[in-house]
């Protein structure tokens, strides 16, 4: 009876595994990318104990020009109670060293593109299988489309090779999670606007306004028509005490999207702080004409009743 139950479970697991395998698209190299990429200068730190997190992150940070060792990173990312490190804490630790972490949004193609752009990539792999998961961080340092392999730093191996097909399975079980780091102001090759803004906002919350400002300035070159981006760069200008720049950027945000209430809210506040009450009231009124119940703007009328009519 028990054997029967186990056999059925095993069969189920095998079917699941087969389904998982068959659903993965084989990797194909985009025409625009070189057939072979290798980043030999990525620093290798042999993993000690369960420190694949600190060791992998150190490889990334050192490549970005930060002088750091796994021993220094371990207190910042290692969780003794879990004998490992968490994805989000790798992002946080990168920020503490003045870098911008970026979580890759795409799939396999994003890996190839970033490697071709010279960025080593930290990936989360499951070396085991769901009931017996074995989470592991490794750093991709190149690929070879002829042998269909990635080159990576993993554990105690400075130059291990893994077939694309095998990698895909381990990576899919790690929810396809991958990150890289850049010096603020340099954008990843596959950067998308919203994740960049999230990283900028995270740096702002830490009080790193200069770093956030560099990200927004670089992003503005690629997305000059984004109202949210102008709003964000207005915020860092305001925090830096540059009110003229803050005003101009929030104005630009409203010009691109008159319904971006957060930008209107901050601009109204700025005008009021400068004693320009008539301008503030006019701006607020324009916003309320678009949406009389706008929840960000409505509360401002308490102290500016003239704008509410």
């Amino acid at each position: 009876m028990q054997r029967c139950f186990l056999a059925r479970q095993l069969a189920g697991v095998c079917l699941l595994a087969l389904a998982a395998c068959s659903s993965l698209e084989p990797i194909t190299l985009p025409q625009s990318l070189p057939p072979r990429v290798s980043l030999p200068s990525v620093a290798f730190f042999p993993q000690q104990d369960n420190w694949c997190g600190p060791a992998s992150l150190a490889s990334l940070l050192v490549h970005a020009g930060i002088s750091v060792t796994p021993e220094q990173l371990a207190p910042q990312v290692f969780l003794p109670g879990r004998q490992g490190a968490l994805n989000l804490e790798l992002l946080a630790a990168s920020r503490r060293h003045g870098l911008m972490p970026y979580v890759l949004q795409g799939d396999n193609n994003a890996l190839l593109q970033e490697l071709a752009a010279g960025h080593p990539i930290l990936v989360l792999l499951d070396l085991g299988m769901p009931p017996l998961s074995r989470w592991h961080y490794a750093v991709l340092t190149g690929y070879d489309s002829a042998s269909r392999e990635f080159q990576m730093i993993s554990g105690e191996q400075a130059n291990s090779r893994i077939e694309w097909a095998v990698f895909q399975r381990l990576w899919a079980r790690g929810q396809n999670w991958a990150m890289l780091v850049t010096v603020p102001g340099t954008l990843p090759a596959t950067a998308e606007l919203m994740p960049l803004l999230q990283q900028g906002a995270a740096l702002e919350q830490m009080g790193r306004f200069i770093d956030a400002g560099k990200i927004y300035a670089a992003a503005a070159k690629r997305w000059p028509q984004s109202a949210a981006l102008w709003f964000a760069s207005g915020n860092v200008a305001y925090r830096a005490g540059d009110r003229a720049a803050a005003e101009a950027r929030w104005q630009q945000a409203l010009l691109l999207d008159a319904d971006l209430a957060a930008a209107r809210h901050n601009l109204v506040e700025l005008l009021r702080q400068q004693g320009r009450h008539a301008e503030a009231a006019r701006l607020l009124k324009q916003g309320l004409l678009r949406d009389p119940q706008q929840p960000l703007l409505r509360p401002l009328t308490d102290s500016m009743p003239s704008a509410a009519d």
């Binding site: 369960n50 879990r82 004998q83 989360l124 989470w135």
Partner: peptide
């Protein structure tokens, strides 16, 4: 924190 993947040893 107790459930998210914590990557450690290979």
């Amino acid at each position: 924190i107790a459930d998210l993947p914590a990557a450690g040893s290979d």
